[in-house]
Design a protein around this nucleic acid. Structure first.
Lengths: 257, 257
DNA sequence: TCTATTGTTACTTTAGGGGTAACAAATGTA
DNA sequence: TACATTTGTTACCCCTAAAGTAACAATAGA
């Protein structure tokens, strides 16, 4: 029926502040170059009765030009200018908001010793923040090459200036990556990738300790990924444990615990 | 009651895609550093029952971190990172939309001989477009120094490469501007600043002719500003008329028309 | 004169956001 | 232990913006 309009484009325009119909009408006008309300309606499927209002508001916003007459003709303003302006306005707004937020919080102290992060982006963000705070050494344990791979370049940079200890459950899985890995062995790997708690399977994907005081553990529970940030003495203890293991060539696991 | 939250900030956050309550909750968390749902509610005025859902969605978006426990504590992710990410996503989206729109229209031909532009931004945009198309000469008539002033730097640039003829209704009003103006005289000025059509007062603010083929006339009707773009033989005729006036030192106005 | 199109108006429906009340569970207190 | 408070959740309501529908007067064309 209405083959001409790319739904992805409409979706993008919506994110830029257009309503669905505004997006359709504007996109329709761009491809028609110059058209009546009816033509826009026929191309886009926007109800004819609505096209008039919609084009009027677009015209007030400066996205559409009007030629008076009977019938009235409409024309789209060059997308370069329209998108450019929207972008500028958004930018101004973002900068202003950031300033105002910064007035509220000069710095964000991390009071608390344990935190849970539930969004993918939040996890990555926090990991990079930890990378930025390393002053001496970073210990990384991982069972997931894809996940670790995302931080390859960050880790390469860290390696230059700090002590970087990388431990994996299975050297073979990580052979593509250009690091000097230590291995825990199969037994430990199977253990951390299948922790059942209350019938829910937890799979540890990654664990990091920075300078023996801050740690982050990333795991999947069900289909969701989650991370826990810990700043407690236990982190220091874990660090020691890892050193012992590195020296003795083995790690002790108390599966009773 | 809730003095702490700047309404401007909330407004900005809304433009960045937050809902009102999301904005309040996030801003509240930023100033509280670390807080329970109740504390956020008390600071921001967001209904307590809603705070839980709102903080949950913010957490899924990665704008807020959660410390499990009883009660649950929440913490805002650094505004720098949050706003930064929103900005990036918006940017990507804008670029994508622009590409998709450009696929629809490789160029926008200006078919039509008369166009009406109703938005402030649209008018300025079109005027600058006309400036960009000048190949030989531009004639500008203005009765409004403020409006013309907005284009001072554009005109200065044009003056270097093309013939620029500036005409005003009253030299005195424009004496601040660094151009060599011609004057029409009071009679003509009064005429164009007070055109009554069907009881509505039209006031001509600005009129431009580029290369004798394209013209734009900006006027205010009531409290709204409007522009008409014309590409008709009449434009050429007007151009001639102006030359005649420049030579003879006067202009004829047929107020009967 | 008749017909189709244009432009307008009034109405319905839907979804999302906001606000309120009420309640079970957990926690704290006399 | 009994009671009160707080926490977290659920079920509602209201309102608005946007989308869709139907009908009609004015205009233009045959």
């Amino acid at each position: 029926m209405y083959p001409a309009i790319n739904p992805d484009l409409i979706h993008n325009l919506e994110k830029l502040g257009f309503t669905e119909n505004e997006g359709k009408a504007y996109a329709g006008l761009v491809s028609l170059k110059e058209a009546t309300a009816r033509e826009v309606h026929e191309l886009t499927g926007v109800p004819r009765a609505k096209v008039y209002d919609i084009l009027k508001t677009l015209s007030k916003k400066g996205f559409v030009e009007v030629r008076q007459g009977s019938p009235v003709y409409f024309q789209a303003v060059d997308p370069k200018h329209v998108i450019g302006r929207i972008k500028d306005e958004f930018f101004t707004c973002a900068i202003e908001a950031l300033d105002q937020l910064n007035e509220l919080s000069y710095d964000i102290p991390r009071f608390s010793p344990v935190w849970c992060i539930q969004s993918e982006w939040g996890i990555r963000n926090r990991i990079r923040e930890i990378f930025g705070n390393v002053r001496d050494e970073l210990i990384v344990f991982s069972t997931n090459p894809e996940f670790l791979g995302e931080f390859e370049s960050d880790l390469k940079k860290l390696e230059k200036n700090y002590r970087l200890i990388l431990i994996v459950d299975d050297l073979n899985k990580f052979r593509e990556m250009p690091f000097d890995f230590k291995e825990t062995g199969k037994e430990f790997g199977d253990f951390v990738r299948n922790l059942f708690i209350d019938g829910v399977q937890y799979s540890e994907e990654c664990f990091m300790i920075a300078d023996g005081k801050e740690s982050i553990a990333v795991h999947t529970a069900g289909d969701k990924r989650e991370a826990v940030v810990i700043r407690l003495p236990v982190v220091c203890y874990l660090q020691k444990l890892i050193y012992n293991w590195l020296v003795k060539g083995g790690i002790m696991i108390d599966t009773q615990q």
